[in-house]
Design a protein around this nucleic acid. Structure first.
Lengths: 119, 119
DNA sequence: TTGTTTATCAACCAGTTGGTTGACTATTTA
DNA sequence: TAAATAGTCAACCAACTGGTTGATAAACAA
């Protein structure tokens, strides 16, 4: 299923999944322990169906996995998927920071070169 | 400006901003160097207005800043905002990983306790 | 001043998201 | 078997996204 899905699609779904306070709250909750739909839905002032759909969004994004335990469908956080996101972000963040540091050095060097005789 | 905005709102905007391949491409481009709207729009098969709006989404999310240079409005990546996102994710990722490691140890201990005489 | 370049604003439209309620499946329990 | 529990599916609706085109503002250049 979904053999031909691009990295872009995966990142789209993952970042979109995190762009909602309810779903981020679910991620936070699941980082403490796995939980069922009912357990996850309980704190929220909305229908269980709405929470179930939020869970599906997280699952399709690969951020959580689900197992079967009788009639329950426990949800488990998928740390590896979270790690992919931080890796993506950090690649560009570190490149930009390195560039800014290099620019600072150039500016510092120019400043020194312009006033070689000062203190 | 915007004194009464919650962390949730900021994270909503930032993750939503990254949940689009065009905007992620802009982030990647800006990690190499700052650039104007025209420069950023050039590679995309869409109107300059559409790219301008993507840039506004990134700016409102705090992921980029803009300066003025005559009639140009150069865009610059904001590494600190990216770092906030990785921090948020990593907090929960590391908690989950630690919990899973602890569970592995419990399971390993139970296995050993059940078969104390087996090698 | 006149015209060119850079960038944004406004109106419009198709598709998606996030909530609702009601019906349904599947599993467990009496 | 019948009834309760866990969860999903389907239809509906308001709000938002992401693209379009046309008009506009602001800074340069002639």
């Amino acid at each position: 299923m979904h053999d031909t899905e691009s990295d872009d699609d995966r990142l789209d779904r993952a970042f979109l999944a995190l762009a909602d306070p309810v779903r981020r709250n679910l991620v936070a909750r699941l980082s403490r322990s796995s939980a069922t739909v009912n357990e996850l839905a309980e704190p929220f002032p909305m229908s269980k169906q709405a929470v179930s759909r939020h869970i599906q969004v997280l699952e399709r994004a690969g951020l959580i996995t689900r197992t079967r335990d009788g009639q329950r469908r426990p949800c488990h956080l998928a740390p590896a998927a979270l790690e992919e996101l931080t890796s993506w972000i950090d690649g560009y963040r570190l490149a930009a920071e390195a560039r800014y540091r290099a620019l600072d050095e150039v500016l510092a060097a120019m400043k020194t070169a312009n006033r070689p005789q000062e203190e």
